[in-house]
Amino acid sequence: MKLAFCYLIFLLTVFSYAQKITVLDSLSHKSIEDVYVVLNDSIVLTTNDLGVISLNKYKNISKLKFTHLNYHTKEYKINNLNDTVFLKQKENTLENIVIEGNKRKKRKQKKITYVHPIKGFLPYGSGEVRPLQNYIHAVYIPAKYIDSSLKIKNIVFKRTLKKSKTWPPFTVLLMTVDSTTNLPYQIIYKDSVFPDNKEQYKTLKVPVLDDIKTPKNGLYVVVDIYKKEYYLKNDLYNNTIPFFKVARLKKHSGFRQFYIDKRRLKPTWIEPLYSQEGIQTFNFGIELIED
């Protein structure tokens, strides 16, 4: 009898976890809209204008990840989850004014450098392209454009808003350069990007939260596009798979673009002809700041 009672209590505990979860700012306790909540690394929900998501439709949830471009990501196992989740805002390191008592003191603005391959917009079309599905796309940034005394603050992506108005999720990586082949080598940073699906900004900045030093022989900015089925399943395809602006290259700039077809048994990096001839690449860039 005791065993049955304990089992009943266990079941009630399992099924009584919050069917509705509210996401709040850790300081202001205000609700946070458009937080992406990833269930079991596969299902994506977004909080409404009250910061609420409902789990009523979903079973066998083991973990949840809460992510927003302006907040630090949090991940919970289902048995450690409360009905309220607090997210901490990412710090703004570029604040120029410090208030001390009644006096205002100006703080020296930190040096920011934006490294990108743009010379001018393409003379045809809209100047932006949808990356191929099931592919990984990489843009090489040569060392000569990177000040080694600076650290990487943001990974930067651009678009024109002519093809699509919002930014669906994707994965971004920073990779070192193989000294022999000059191809992408080791991952030094990886992040899942879940932009605010109501924003229509042309420039998307993904903060690099780790202290990443710029490799001496350059680096690769790499984008991994999810399968079309992922966007369809999560009702994101109407926003379209991400489009990225393409950039014309300066003569002998050294920027290059590569891709991998993940469907192949032995995928290898391939450089398209327009990159080999130094014509264009995706406009993937980085923003550097003083340490």
Rank of each mutant, 00 (worst) to 15 (best):
R159G: 00
I99A: 08
P242A: 06
L209D: 14
D210H: 03
T160V: 09
N283H: 07
E100P: 00
Y114L: 15
T13I: 11
F243P: 00
L174H: 10
V193I: 15
Y58G: 03
N48V: 04
Y71S: 03
L150C: 06
K63S: 14
F244S: 03
E33V: 06
V206H: 02
V221S: 02
F194E: 05
L173I: 03
N217P: 00
K63D: 12
P195L: 07
N234C: 01
R107F: 02
T13S: 12
S253A: 09
A4N: 08
K103Q: 08
A247Q: 02
V115Y: 07
F5M: 13
I286R: 08
Y114R: 14
S42M: 10
E229I: 04
V222E: 01
K151L: 13
K65N: 02
A138S: 15
Y7E: 10
Y58V: 02
V85C: 05
K198Y: 10
K59W: 06
R107V: 15
T160A: 07
V156T: 15
V44C: 07
I99Y: 09
F121Q: 07
F194Q: 04
F15E: 05
K108C: 04
T240G: 02
L173C: 06
L132D: 14
F244D: 05
K110C: 01
K108Y: 08
L55H: 05
K228Y: 13
Y259S: 08
I241G: 00
N102T: 13
V37F: 01
I146Y: 01
T281M: 00
T240Y: 11
N102V: 09
V156M: 06
I155Y: 00
K198N: 12
Y145D: 06
Q280L: 13
Y17I: 15
S42C: 04
M1S: 12
V38T: 13
P168A: 14
G278R: 00
D41P: 02
I118F: 14
Y189V: 02
K88A: 14
H252T: 01
Q133C: 03
L87G: 05
T240R: 14
T113R: 10
Y7S: 11
Y274A: 05
I61A: 03
Q89N: 12
V177W: 03
L249M: 02
S26I: 14
L232G: 00
G285Q: 06
T180Q: 13
T203V: 15
T113L: 11
V208K: 12
V38I: 15
F244C: 05
N79T: 08
I43L: 09
H29N: 14
K65I: 10
K111W: 05
K90W: 02
T67R: 08
